[in-house]
Design a protein around this nucleic acid. Structure first.
Length: 496
RNA sequence: GGCGGCAUAGCCAAGUGGCUAAGGCAGCGGUCUGCAAAACCGUUUGACACCGGUUCGAAUCCGGUUGCCGCCUCCA
């Protein structure tokens, strides 16, 4: 069964066929580094991280390119406001980006180019556009002439006339056509600048991605991704520039993720309704954020709310509890749960978790469907753990089930932690009691229980509960664990 | 104004022509337990926005209506 991806260019799901058999080139628009990233950026990063992981799991050799826009008007504006030079600002937010991504378990791309390091490639592409008469200069500004490129509007499904008619932007007198856009901008005093045949200045936003994607993946490559809001004008313009300059098709598949919303409205800087990844990580465990981000199909809007995150937390705890039970029964997991995907799904067949997982993920990367399968498997494992079948018969089976579960989890970048470590991390308040004290009280309670002094036993349990410890009387003896202060209930209360 | 997307139980969310419409969260009942917790089982009277159409058959396809959202300006 082939992988099918929704291609924004054709507005339908298409069977994915790479240009070169077994190899995939993918370019994803990264961030403009003028501020901290928010949950919307996190979604995009996580979605494409999963796409790349999944392609690798399916056996493809992937070259993943994700850029940084490190020169643009917003960075300059911030520099002017704060007095910090643009390079320092860019560096600061690139570092912040890496911190966020590593926390979220987003793996590095293979190539992470920066616009300022590719000015030569940009100028080279502009030169070709100028030679073909598609670019023109007015003073120190160079424009792309949309009328000279036949396919303009094909990606976003717009026609030039309609765009002009409905445009809300003021028309720039210097442009030959209202929809023409900037390739090169002359530098004002104090602004970052580079030499070019058209004078000192800096590249426009769109050209860097055309130049860098072609530089690392070739003029025609497989997948181009980014947020839905980039379709127009950014990706439309990127495509126009590259195709006009190179004369061949640009990206074969355009993959766009939907927005994170807050009360159904797009999370964005301009609306001010955003929550930064760093703020979110203060409140939520990275794995629960990640589970939340993958709980809905990547193209649909995803509403951010404390209740939704609480749901993600409860679900995650459920899975980790089962993993912990498995550890107690069959010992710790020996495989790798982190890092790059090995191609483990490529040749499996039969009626098992991995195959079901591939089936749903092949359908346009249905992470929500995949998660459903993981939960089904968890229940199945619990059922097996609950049953009193001879341990010897089930042991090997359980180990196999766990390894399948964790392999699928790894595609999603989930279930990476050892259960005990996860539970430690998710507890927000340190226990008021140390382990020794707790053990002592448990001992005392068990003495009371043996004497069938239930009142006393319950009082001790109640006391421990108040101090954040939950007891479980299992067949093998009494186990205790710390209460999760940020558990579903209290989070929900916080939210409303 | 132009173009596009979405609408599934108390909440979140898969499924996109055909067996009893995944899964999670929350609630309720049960099993287990001294009681709990966890887990398991069951359950939430007809869950597929509304109205038409196509079809033997539609949540799924087509048309229309309503509502919400997005892009058309920087935006993941």
């Amino acid at each position: 069964m082939p992988l099918r991806l929704y291609n924004s260019a054709s507005r339908r799901k298409e069977v994915f066929k790479p240009i070169e058999n077994g190899r995939v080139g993918i370019y994803v628009c990264g961030v403009t580094v003028y501020d901290l990233c928010h949950i919307g950026h996190a979604r995009s990063a996580v979605v494409f991280d999963v796409l790349v992981r999944y392609l690798r799991a399916r056996g493809y050799g992937v070259t993943y390119v994700r850029n940084f826009t490190d020169v643009d008007d917003k960075i300059i504006e911030r520099s002017k406001r704060t007095g910090v030079d643009t390079a320092t600002i860019a560096e600061r937010y690139i570092n912040a980006f890496y911190e966020d991504m590593r926390a979220l378990g987003v793996l590095d791309a293979d190539v992470e180019p920066r616009a300022t390091e590719h000015i030569d490639d940009i100028i080279d592409m502009m030169r070709r556009l100028a030679e073909k008469g598609v670019a023109y200069a007015v003073g120190d500004t160079v424009y792309f002439s949309v009328e000279k490129f036949d396919g303009y509007g094909q990606l976003s499904g717009r026609r030039l006339e309609e765009m002009v008619a409905g445009a809300r932007i003021g028309i720039d007198e210097k442009k030959r056509h209202p929809m023409d856009f900037v390739l090169w901008k002359g530098a004002k005093p104090g602004e970052p600048k580079w030499e070019s045949p058209w004078g000192e200045g800096r590249p426009g936003w769109h050209i860097e991605c055309s130049a860098m994607s072609c530089r690392y993946l070739g003029e025609n490559f497989d997948i181009h991704g980014g947020g839905r809001d980039l379709i127009f004008p950014h990706h439309e313009n990127e495509r126009a520039q590259a195709m006009a300059a190179n004369g061949v098709n640009f990206a074969n598949y355009w993959v766009h993720n939907g927005f994170v919303t807050v009360e159904s409205e797009k999370m964005s800087k301009s609306l001010g309704n955003f929550i930064t990844i760093k703020d979110a990580l203060e409140l939520y465990h990275p794995q629960e954020l990640r589970l939340f981000l993958l709980s809905k199909h990547y193209r649909s809007p995803l509403d951010f709310s404390p209740a939704a995150l609480a749901g993600a937390r409860s679900g995650l705890i459920r899975i980790y509890r089962t993993l912990q039970r498995l550890e107690e029964t069959v010992g710790p997991y020996r495989g790798s749960t982190k890092g790059r995907m090995a191609p483990f799904l490529a040749r499996s067949d039969g009626d098992n978790l991995k195959n079901h997982f591939v089936r749903v993920m092949d359908d346009d990367l249905s992470t929500a469907g995949g998660l459903g399968l993981l939960f089904e498997k968890v229940r199945e494992i619990n059922r097996c753990l609950d049953s009193s079948l001879p341990r010897k018969d089930t042991r090997a089976q359980l180990m196999k089930e766990r390894s399948d579960l964790l392999d699928c989890g790894k595609v999603l970048g989930l279930l990476e932690e050892e259960p005990s470590k996860f539970f430690e991390e998710i507890i927000e308040t340190p226990p008021e009691l140390d382990a020794e004290e707790i053990e002592g009280m448990v001992q005392e309670r068990n003495t009371a229980r043996i004497a069938r002094d239930w009142t006393r036993a319950d009082a001790i349990r109640e006391e421990l509960f108040k101090r954040g410890v939950i007891l479980e009387d299992a067949p093998g003896g009494t186990k205790w664990r710390l209460k999760l202060e940020g558990s579903a209930k209290s989070l929900e209360e916080e939210g409303d």
